[in-house]
């Protein structure tokens, strides 16, 4: 029983170690320091998105709009940067706040109409994608100011990517909120048992709306990093990334039913996904293979988790 629990709690780290060893043996290019930094850089977008997703999923909801919201945020910020006299920082902050507002709209509609979060955010996802295309009629926005590049492409000390620092900051702040604040405790509470949380005096409606606002803001941040990395506003930026974020969460031990999940596990989850994508790319596998493998990993991890869970509960009741 102990062994089973150990495996269940650490399955993501075991996987990560196995993957790293496997890829290191398979190709000499994988384990080089340069590639390690590349991995970090590659996961910065989905990583931030995974933290966004984890707040929503732990609270018992889901947000499928955060991927396309990244693209919309990139388009709007790019427009502000190229067509308005606003300073760069203000344009970026407006872009992020705009996503926060979109998140709030999702949150309010989910909370007050009691519609399923899955449907609401699926709809919002399409709204974001369509809107992103409509801003320019589908064309990308080029000609961003030089300084914006630093976010997605810049380095500090010559080797630490700025976007990785931002990811680390988001992870640390996210983990602190989830583990050390009353807000974080309430997120777990409403995801575990909404009625008991409500009857304990927690303002469940405020909590529900707020997690979608957080998800929107983080999605906006991630969108600006991606815009900066590709040095343009692209309507389809971020499209599909919400699924990578969701997979990272689930692989990292976040229960899709809500109330469960640790920040450390989510970090493990994003690295598993990042290492997997990078390793396969370094080995020269196609995008298609990568997509297929991601799907398999999701199935294997969740199947293992569900199996050990039923196994544990059977042992307990026996």
């Amino acid at each position: 029983m102990k062994a089973a629990r150990m495996v269940k709690e650490n399955v993501v780290w075991v996987m990560l170690v196995v993957l790293v060893i496997m890829f290191s043996l398979a190709t000499p290019n994988f384990a080089k320091p340069g590639n390690m930094i590349t991995i970090f850089r590659q996961i910065s977008n989905t990583g931030i998105l995974a933290i966004a997703m984890s707040f929503v999923v732990i609270s018992g909801g889901i947000d499928l709009s955060i991927g396309n919201m990244m693209g919309l945020c990139g388009m709007i910020t790019a427009m502000l940067l190229t067509q308005s006299p606003l300073p760069i920082a203000v344009s970026c902050i407006l872009g992020i706040l705009f996503c926060g507002v979109l998140g709030m709209i999702s949150g309010v509609l989910i909370t007050y109409t009691k519609m399923p979060a899955l449907i609401m955010t699926l709809g919002m996802s399409y709204v974001c994608l369509g809107w992103a295309f409509l801003t320019t009629g589908g064309f990308p926005i080029y000609g961003l100011p030089e300084q914006i590049k630093i976010l997605g492409q810049g380095y500090i000390f010559g080797w630490v990517p700025v976007c990785v620092l931002i990811l680390i900051a988001v992870i640390i702040i996210g983990a602190l909120i989830l583990n050390k604040t009353n807000y974080g405790r309430y997120v777990y509470a409403i995801g575990s048992n909404e009625e008991a949380a409500r009857l304990s005096g927690i303002n469940v409606k405020f909590m529900r709306v707020s997690v979608y606002v957080i998800a929107g803001i983080l999605s906006g941040l991630s969108g600006i990093l991606l815009m900066s990395r590709v040095n343009s506003g692209q309507p389809k930026n971020g499209n599909g990334m919400e699924m990578d974020a969701l997979i990272a969460c689930v692989v990292g031990g976040v229960s899709i039913a809500g109330g469960e999940g640790k920040a450390s596990g989510i970090v493990g989850g994003m690295f598993v996904m990042g290492v997997l994508a990078n390793g396969m790319a370094v080995m020269g596998m196609s995008d298609y293979t990568q997509t297929l493998v991601k799907g398999l990993v999701l199935i294997i991890v969740v199947a293992t988790d569900s199996f050990t869970r039923t196994y544990l509960s059977k042992r307990k009741s026996a």
């Binding site: 509470a189 575990s192 048992n193 008991a196 005096g201 109330g259």
Partner: peptide
Amino acid sequence: DGLILNFPIKWNITL
């Protein structure tokens, strides 16, 4: 309604 069963005792008491 009274408890969050997967919460530890401590978290339930101080909720």
